[in-house]
């Protein structure tokens, strides 16, 4: 554990809590892509199956359980409790265009051809692209509420901090997880355009982000 990794995990947690609280307090999930949230729930579900097979640390177990619980709570709020506010007309990204290549890749490129390893690899590849329905929705409607952009900022920050973590671990421990690093870098690139808009429009404009 290093400071980048810890800060990354905290950013990830903050992002998820921001989104959950926003939906809970406003009793609305307008502007939120339910598809992205289902994909994230799927990411955690397939990655954290090792909760049943290996014990890494108390921290590891607690965080995994929290991420799983919060992601399912978010999906529940969007599709059940506040489904009347769900903007399904603008949440039209074709998820199968992500799932098919991701499933294919996880069978081709993995550390071991075992069910758990293939599912772990699937979760890593899927996480890299799971935010695309949300970004697509913002592009389609041309705007995002500021709280939604804060959510995306912390999610992107988490990815950027994980890259710093990997640089640190490579130099200090000789640790290099090629699958995680390559997909993590790809994932972070998706946020670069958003980071630019976030700084230039949301932080300076203090309002919701609208695209030109």
């Amino acid at each position: 554990m290093n400071i980048f990794r810890l800060a990354g995990d905290v950013s990830h947690l903050v992002a998820i809590i921001i989104l959950l609280l926003k939906i809970w307090r406003s009793k609305s999930c307008a502007g939120i892509s339910g598809k992205s949230q289902v994909l994230f729930a799927l990411v955690f579900s397939t990655r954290y199956l090792d909760l049943f097979t290996v014990f890494v640390s108390v921290y590891n177990v607690v965080m995994k359980v929290v991420f799983l619980a919060l992601s399912y709570a978010t999906v529940y709020l969007i599709y059940m409790r506040f489904r009347n506010s769900y903007d399904s007309e603008n949440d039209t990204f074709r998820v199968e265009f992500l799932l098919v290549p991701v499933i294919g890749l996880s069978f081709l490129e993995n550390y071991a051809f075992t069910p758990l390893e293939i599912l772990w690899t699937f979760s890593i590849f899927l996480e890299a692209v799971a935010i695309m329905p949300q970004l697509f929705m913002i592009t389609k409607t041309g705007e995002a509420e500021s709280i939604t952009t804060h959510y995306l900022f912390f999610l992107g920050l988490y990815r950027a901090l994980y890259i710093a973590n990997w640089v640190w671990r490579y130099h200090m421990e000789g640790f290099f997880d090629q699958i995680a690093v390559v997909s993590g870098v790809v994932q972070t690139i998706f946020y670069c355009d958003f980071f630019y808009l976030y700084v230039t429009r949301v932080l300076r404009g203090k309002g919701k982000m609208s695209l030109p």
Partner: peptide
């Protein structure tokens, strides 16, 4: 180390 059973990151 083949990376298997070694996924200590979240």
């Amino acid at each position: 180390d083949d990376g298997v059973d070694d996924h200590d990151e979240l």
